[in-house]
Amino acid sequence: MKKYIDYIRIGMKEHLVYPSAVCAKLFSKIIYLYLQFCIWSALFSSGSIKNLAINKTDTLRYIVVATIVSTVIECNIIEKINAQIQSGNIATELIRPIGFKRMLFSRHLGDTAIKIICCLLPLIGLVKASVSLQLLCIEQIGFGIISILLAYGIQFLYSIIIGLLAFWLIVTWPINMFLSAIYKLLSGVWIPVTMFPEILYRINLFLPFRAIYSIPVSVLTNSMKMNVIWQSIGVQIIWLVILYILMQFLWHEGRNKLVVQGG
């Protein structure tokens, strides 16, 4: 247990090495939140709404909460795993007495702890002070937190899976770029998925992306029927399991490849 706590501490320290980067992160989130808020307010004020199932308040709540939640859910381990696999350093990680994935997760927890303190809390304070919106659906807050935790896990597994692709690819950044673009659109962190045209909405139902933002943010902000909430959480759990199995599979294949080729 102690070794995991050590790694959590390392994750926290790594994040704090460049204080300017932490400030820049917070600042960019504030700018983004402001941008989103202005755009959606202006769109609804323009009085030109077509076939829309979601109203202004709900949209603004959704957008604000999604941006705030994104500070916690985001996971930037993809490049780290890529770099370790490509440089061959992963071999040295394998001989350590702690599992590679657990080590990564511990570090990520530490990283998140700092993000909560340096990014999430200031952002919440700022929003509370400047926007007079009832953001959360108080009755469902317990479910909301469970849903965020599940989303956190899904995001982490997703990042590991993409990172592990480096075992099979020479360059990884185009894949990362490609996936992050799709992710940005389909996860609902940019545009609420309820606004998608029918066909896009349907496709998205079969992809894991919406389980990361769309579901938890909806649970947090929309008052829903009990069975819908359970359904949403059920979808998240299914994705968590699928991604976990996929991750284990890729990890074993990759490690075999490493052993066979000698790094």
Binding site: F44, S48, K50, M177, L185, M195
Partner: peptide, 22 residues
């Protein structure tokens, strides 16, 4: 390809927004 898709998706998002608003 990655760059094409990244930019394409930005335009797709733009399209989604103006699918809902005039």
């Amino acid at each position: 390809i990655a760059n094409t898709i990244q930019i394409g998706i930005y335009f797709a998002g733009f399209w989604v927004i103006f699918y809902n608003f005039e």
